[in-house]
Structure formats: structure tokens, C-alpha cells
Design a protein around this nucleic acid. Sequence first.
DNA 1: ACAAGTATGCACCTTTTGGTAAGTACCCAA
DNA 2: TTGGGTACTTACCAAAAGGTGCATACTTGT
Lengths: 144, 144
Amino acid sequence: MSSDRSDLLSPPAQAQADVPRCTPNLPGFTCGLDATLRVVSGKWKPLILYFLAQDGPTRYGELRRAVRDVSDKVLIQQLKELEADGLIKRTDYKEVPPRVDYSLTPLGHSLAQALVPLCTWGTEHMAEVSRVFAERATWNTKRQ
Amino acid sequence: MSSDRSDLLSPPAQAQADVPRCTPNLPGFTCGLDATLRVVSGKWKPLILYFLAQDGPTRYGELRRAVRDVSDKVLIQQLKELEADGLIKRTDYKEVPPRVDYSLTPLGHSLAQALVPLCTWGTEHMAEVSRVFAERATWNTKRQ
DNA sequence: ACAAGTATGCACCTTTTGGTAAGTACCCAA
DNA sequence: TTGGGTACTTACCAAAAGGTGCATACTTGT
């Protein structure tokens, strides 16, 4: 009597080998992707990292204007977290109208590199994404 | 005089050319990265996409157990959004103990590919990330 | 003298997000 | 008959995240 349940568990399920396995290594993270997400989640963090990677050291005000729609409070907050996580470096020039700039650390730079494909994906599929969001919007206004 | 303020605006600032410019194309998105983020933000979405890319079509319950710590409500919710955004496909087998599975669409698959570097980054730098988080934790408990 | 720009800090509030616990309808195994 | 598994749904709540507006202290431009 078939106590063999191998047919109920996922059958070999020819995995698409085009994506490498992401296995857990350290306690506290389910996998590498999880670890990354802990560090980049924050509405503006990826944008900040990417901007710094493109433009090099940037003053606070310039960053503020580049990352559109962010508020001071949140921008500062995310910059502090990125700094605490070792991804960016804050340089205070101790000048008298304050002057500060932010730049990527090597770690931050490597992360920004990893963001490149996401950026590319978004650029390539922006039309699709845009369409879907438009539909959702009309939907919501109709139901509201 | 000197109404020329080109020295006050960011000077050529030799950009690190190792990261491609991410320029806005469509209204509503500041850039490609922004577009991507709209679609993958959600605590578990990248994990779901990556899991499906690794393991192929997966039943709800299996996914639930794979994405550790997610609640039913949120998992379902994120699956619905991913489906609405055209990244995954839900298949209902209409069987009587319900049977449903989720798989990536081509679009979802391409996005999962773009997540690979993030996953790799996390795996490679997990030690650093872990350290930083541990420090933050002791900090918080001390101050609490 | 006054407004504007510099990089923040803080109090307060709203929105968004996520979690808990219960329920559903049906089946199978003990 | 009880308990567990399937794939959800719903109502309610807590926490996290983000936004607004005001304040600072000093300078430069008008």
C-alpha cells in the first residue's frame, strides 16, 4: 500500500535552471535575497543608491531635488539608515552655511550594480507597467 | 557680474560610468527603477517571484510554507496583486479539495531574472549585513 | 532689513501595510 | 466524530512608514 508519497510531494518538477538557487546561509535570513531586501527596503533607498552611483558624491539639497517627492524627514531618515548599514558615507565639510555630501561606499557601490537589471527591466517594460496601473486606477475610482 | 553659475551647478562630476543612466520615459515614473519598484514592493513579492522562478508552478500551500512567516491574508493579497500586474498566473484546477497553483508569466520570469543579482549580492554580503543588524539590535534593546 | 538657501530636528498626524483569529465548504484518515 | 488538510475570505487591530509644518543658526543676495 503506497506509503510512498513521492507523487504527492512536488515531483521532480524540472526547475527552470536559469535562476540560481538562493539558499539560506546565516540565521536570521531565509536567503540572500531576503538579506538584500532588509537593507534596501525603504521607499526611496534604491533610488538614492542608484542616483549616487550615477552621479557620484552629491550634496543633500541636490539629492533632495533629484529624488522627487521625498520629504526632508524621510530622506534624512533613509540616508541615516543607509549610512548605518555601511552603504553610503556622509561627509560634513563643517562649513558655515552647512555643506554635506553623500557618496557610496564600496559596499553600496556593489549593491547599486546589482540594481542595474531592475532599472533596465523597468525601462524596458514601462509601457506594460504603466498600462496595468492605469487600469487599476480607473477600477478604483469606479468602485469608490 | 559672473551671472554664469555653471560652477555652482554640479560640475561635470565625472560620473562613474559603470552604472547606466536611468532616464524617465513615461509620465508617472521618475525612471525605470521607479517603475520596477512600484511592482515589486510588497514585503514578500520578490521572494515569491524568486521562488516561482526556482521551483516552477507551485501550489498555494507549498508557497505558504516556503515563504516563511507570511500570513494567509497577506500572501493571498500579494499573489493577487502580482497576478493583476501580469507577473504570475493562477491556475485553478477546479478540484474538490481545492487545488490551485501559481506560475510565472514571461513578464514575471524576466523580472525574476533581474532579481538574481540582488540575491547574489545578499548571499555574498550576508555576513556584513548580519553584523550591522546585530549591532542595531543591541542598540535598540539598550535604549529600550 | 528681509527673504532665501543650507542641512537638519522634532512633534504630530495620516496612510499604508501587515498580522490575528475566526469562518467556509468540502474531503480524507483515524 | 474528531481532526487535519485544501484555498481562501472577512472583520478587526497594531505597527510601521511616511508626510506636514515649524524651528534652528548662520550666510548671502536684494
